[in-house]
Design a binder for these strands. Sequence first.
DNA 1: CGTCGGGCTACGC
DNA 2: GCGTAGCCCGACG
Length: 279
Amino acid sequence: MGNPKQKWTSEEEEALRAGVAKHGTGKWKNIQRDPEFNHLLYSRSNIDLKDKWRNLIVGTNGQGPREKSRTPKAKANPDAPATPMPSAQTPASSTPVAHDASVDTVMEDSSKCLLDGKTASKYNAMIYEALSTLKDPNGSDTSALVSFIEQRHEVPPNFRRLLSSRLRRLVAQDKLEKVQNCYRIKKDILLGAKSTAPKQKDIRPRQSQTTGYLGDTLEEAAVATAYKIAEAENKSFVAAEAVKEAERVSKMAEDADSLLQLAKEIYEKCSRGEIVLMA
DNA sequence: CGTCGGGCTACGC
DNA sequence: GCGTAGCCCGACG
């Protein structure tokens, strides 16, 4: 009630970045506890840090609403395949690449409608289903996706909004690609990747007895999608190494930049004869 | 206990 | 009306 909203200041943001640079992502509590940043982040919880960083990343990823790229990210990643935006993908969220590679979703799209526990995002599956069915070379826009999904699934009234939110997030995670107003499944990085069989051997050959509204073309598309995802998963794994390298470099660059600025300030003050207090 | 991902909603354009 | 950003909640380790 009495919480209008607490917007993040650039100080806090900078502290967060510095904290991430020092401790790495995921160590939100450490960052928050760190006496160095606690002065700025005392009013924020570790969850807040995580959330803020999430939004920060979206903007840093390349095309984002807000580009706060103050620091010229190092290019690096010489081995970059055919990826449009290989550089600084996600500072330390190699998680989305490797860990998140579990790509939960996808696999059992429609059959997941009323499945047991997992309760993962079935929306993602719907999106993949829709995209892989209407194979639009230019991608499908939100309206097309909404109507497609609405025809096959039960959706809440505010689904459109939900969907667009989800689409954005998927794009941010590099799972989808947005061209103009249309979305399509992203299939970046293509490399030799020997088919490392173990995983995708069981991509549910048959499914759909849950409801039965499934067409065979749809099923085929679903399987194809699952296959592609599995393939992409393998590629991601291989690519993760390169990405990590890039991350490391860009992180170093950021660090160096911060230190440089700090050093500059100190230098100027010193040359003016002022006394500088170091923390 | 801490982290992560999803979802909701107020706010700005 | 859409997109963004902060915040909350449940799940998982």
